Structure formats: C-alpha cells, structure tokens
Simulated assay, not measured.
Amino acid sequence: MRRARASTDDEGSAALEFILVGLVLLVPIVYLIVAVGTIQGQSLGVETGARQLARTLADSPDAATADARAQRVRDAIVAEYGLDPDAVSVSIECGGAAPECPAAGALLSVTMRASVPLPLVPAVLGLDQLARVPVEASSVQRVSRYGGVAP
C-alpha cells in the first residue's frame, strides 16, 4: 500500500513545472515586446523625419538653402531617434511645372525609408542583414505661393 502512494506523489514538481513553463513562455514574450518597441521607435523617427523634412523644404526660399536645411534636419533626426545613417534614404518629389524645387505653389512630397535591425540577432552568416524590418513614411506639404517664404 505504501509503495502505490509513493509513485503518485508529486510533491515539489509544481514549482519546477512553473519555472520551466514560465521561462518557455516568458522569454519569447519579452523578446517580442523589445522587438516591437524598437520597430515602433524607429518608425516614429522615420515619420517625424518625413514630416519635418517636408516642412523645412517647403519653407526654404531656394534650392541651395533647401538642400542645406534638409541635410541638417536629416542628421538631427538620425541622431535623435538612433537610426542607422546608412540604412536611411530620403526621396523628394516636387509636383508642378517648375523645374526647381521648392517652387511657389508646388506640392512637395517627401518619403523617408529605413530598415530596423531586430535586437539580439548575431552577425553570423549575414543574419543581421536578413533580420531587418523596413519602415517607411511619407509627408506632403504645399509650398507657399510666395515662393517658400512663410506668409
């Protein structure tokens, strides 16, 4: 009788099962939270960059000033949000008949793209380059009809 009771005794195994199952479930959830937070932070940086670049270009009086201001804004956004400068690209389109951008009354479109590396991915066999999430944001701004000078 005593022997049958000893084989069904589970004393002490609940704590071990809790720790094992807790680790198996907790580690992926924590990684997911960190990865989504990183992607969201970079996404906010790209969105802010596109919006600020469009505003800066629309308020510039000429193309040379627009280029200098745009480079300063891009560098500030990259530094503030921790973006990889090599993974950030900016494309600018200026709608309208004028060949030079920013032209008075033109519709200015700025698209900023970046790729976000997932955290804790090793640089072995190029895995860090494969484990990247692309983020993109666009902003449209109309240039003042007075030639980029704020009314």
Score class of each variant (00 low, 15 high):
L107M: 02
L120G: 02
V73A: 03
P151T: 03
G105M: 03
V116E: 01
E47M: 07
D67W: 00
R72N: 11
Q129A: 03
G37Q: 11
A66H: 11
R69E: 12
V143Q: 10
R142C: 03
D62Y: 05
L25E: 02
A15R: 09
S43W: 10
A137D: 00
G45T: 04
A66P: 14
R74H: 09
V110S: 05
E100A: 14
I92Q: 13
A97V: 05
L23V: 14
D84W: 14
E11A: 15
Q42A: 13
D67F: 02
V121N: 04
R3W: 07
D10F: 12
L20C: 12
Q52S: 15
G37W: 07
V135H: 09
P99L: 10
S13M: 08
L57S: 09
P151E: 11
V27M: 04
A123H: 03
S115V: 10
V78L: 11
P61N: 07
S115N: 13
T8L: 07
I29N: 02
L20K: 01
G96I: 08
S91F: 01
G126C: 02
V143G: 02
V88M: 11
V21H: 00
V133C: 07
P117M: 00
L108W: 02
V30R: 01
V149I: 15
V121L: 06
I19Y: 14
Q141D: 04
S7V: 15
A150Q: 13
